[in-house]
């Protein structure tokens, strides 16, 4: 059973055991428009909650992707290098960015669950 949580900066993290998979939400990909480049972190690097972990670029602009929680990067989605548009077509699936081993799982409690994120989006509209 996996758990999915969201940040107010429009990242998601799906957690199974001590591994979290991170991407950006459908709202984020829609706001950005056509994704043309993704800069992924290096495997083995440590990321800190709320700081830059990756970069996503649309035709118009570059945006930072923040780490939702602390962790060590264990995998990156190399398919995005050739097909960055996967972020647009399947943001919560094939458009994942990286995986990390959580070093401070208690941080997950600070994140939004699905319903809370939906309410947050409605508040933005």
């Amino acid at each position: 059973m996996s758990l999915i949580k969201f940040t107010k900066d429009h990242e998601w993290i799906r957690v199974e055991g001590d591994i979290g998979t991170v991407g950006i939400t459908n709202h984020a990909q829609h706001a950005l428009g056509d994704i043309v480049f993704v800069d992924l972190p290096e495997i083995g690097c440590e990321v800190t909650q709320g700081t830059d972990a990756a970069v996503v670029e649309s035709v118009k602009a570059a945006s930072e992707v923040y780490a939702p929680v602390d962790g060590e990067v264990t995998a990156v989605n190399d398919a995005l290098t050739e097909e960055p548009a996967r972020v647009n077509t399947d943001p919560l699936g094939e458009g994942w960015f990286f995986r990390l081993r959580l070093t401070n799982p208690a941080q997950l409690d600070q994140l939004l669950d699905h319903d809370a994120y939906q309410s947050y989006l409605e508040g933005l509209a």
Binding site: D9, E11, I24, V56, S63, V65
Partner: peptide, 8 residues
Amino acid sequence: MSETPDTP
């Protein structure tokens, strides 16, 4: 993630 804000 961050989005570039529109010019106010």
